[in-house]
């Protein structure tokens, strides 16, 4: 049975190496969580150790107090609001636009499709400055409008994702509905929408964690600390020059990642499938 033994040995080696590699890759994140439970003065003593001597959960309570009298309750609430509203807007209107590309034949469709693909590659930083000037002129600085409104016009990546999904729905369904008297609009609501829920869920998850992690937009548009989402608040809270309570800082940092990690683990299949089929962003 030499061959079988050899094969098993190979597998053990393979898995051991993989496990070690994975552990190394995850170390920074685990280290962060571990540091969040350490006594502040101990965080940077033999800092590579993950497990704290005693678990100081109060770091989380202290960190939650935030700064300038604003607790993280406000910050999390803000993040939740911005993220949720953006997500709802983006999936509804991305679905609407996706329907037009994939199920309606109209003049100029090809041109607009090309424009959409090109827009997908255009980074936000390119239009950031003129957009800021426009929003400034409209008086929308220090409001949530610049952060939320653009989602309500369709997000190219989601449009593309949902389009691919709609293409798997047989056109016979549309035709059958037409025979039964549906027009194009009601086909969308009655036939297509119920069937693209998985794609919309994938888009919702991506939207959630892009919006939650978004740092640059809040940075340039928001000026009142009470309006800050977690991403921005965290940066201010963690300014190395002013941090005294390192344990609390790590605690809040860990907490800011928690929603994303939880959602990721619950919905990972949607995310992995979404990326695999459309192969973009991450």
């Amino acid at each position: 049975m030499d061959y079988r033994k050899k094969k098993r040995l190979k597998k053990i080696v393979q898995h051991t190496l993989l496990l070690i590699f994975t552990a190394i890759m995850l170390y920074p994140i685990v280290w962060m969580a571990g540091s969040s439970l350490k006594e502040s003065s101990q965080v940077f003593v033999d800092s590579h150790l993950i497990l704290p001597e005693s678990w100081k959960f109060s770091n989380y309570v202290e960190g939650w107090q935030g700064f300038a009298g604003i607790t993280f309750t406000t910050f999390f609430k803000n993040s939740l609001f911005i993220t949720t509203v953006s997500t709802i807007g983006s999936i509804i209107f991305s679905a609407v636009v996706a329907y037009s590309f994939s199920r309606i034949n109209f003049k100029g469709r090809k041109m607009w499709f090309v424009i959409m693909m090109m827009t997908m590659m255009l980074p936000f930083e390119m239009v950031m400055i003129p957009q800021y000037i426009m929003f400034n002129w409209a008086g929308w600085i220090d409001t949530y409008l610049p952060l939320i409104l653009p989602s309500f016009f369709g997000v190219p990546f989601f449009i593309f994702l949902i389009m691919q999904f709609i293409r798997t729905i047989p056109k016979e369904l549309d035709q059958a509905a037409r025979i039964d008297g549906c027009n194009t609009i009601s086909i969308f609501f009655r036939i297509i929408v119920p069937l693209i829920v998985p794609a919309m869920m994938t888009a919702a998850i991506f939207s959630f964690y892009w919006r939650w992690d978004d740092f640059m937009s809040p940075l340039i548009y928001l000026q009142t600390p009470e309006k800050y989402p977690v991403s921005l608040a965290l940066k201010l809270f963690s300014d190395p020059n002013s941090v005294t309570n390192w344990g609390a800082m790590f605690a809040m940092t860990t907490l800011s990642l928690l929603p994303i990690i939880i959602i990721f683990f619950i919905f990972q299949r949607y995310i992995v499938d979404g990326i695999s089929t459309s192969g973009l962003k991450g």
């Binding site: 959409m116 827009t119 653009p150 309500f152 016009f153």
Partner: peptide, 28 residues
């Protein structure tokens, strides 16, 4: 061809692109 329907459903993207992408690029 249903041009009207097509552009009805496409309109959010058209408005968004013109307003938030095309115009800003030219303006910049």
């Amino acid at each position: 061809r249903e041009n009207g329907m097509g552009y009805l459903f496409l309109s959010p993207f058209v408005i968004g692109t013109v307003g938030f992408t095309l115009f800003p690029i030219l303006y910049s």
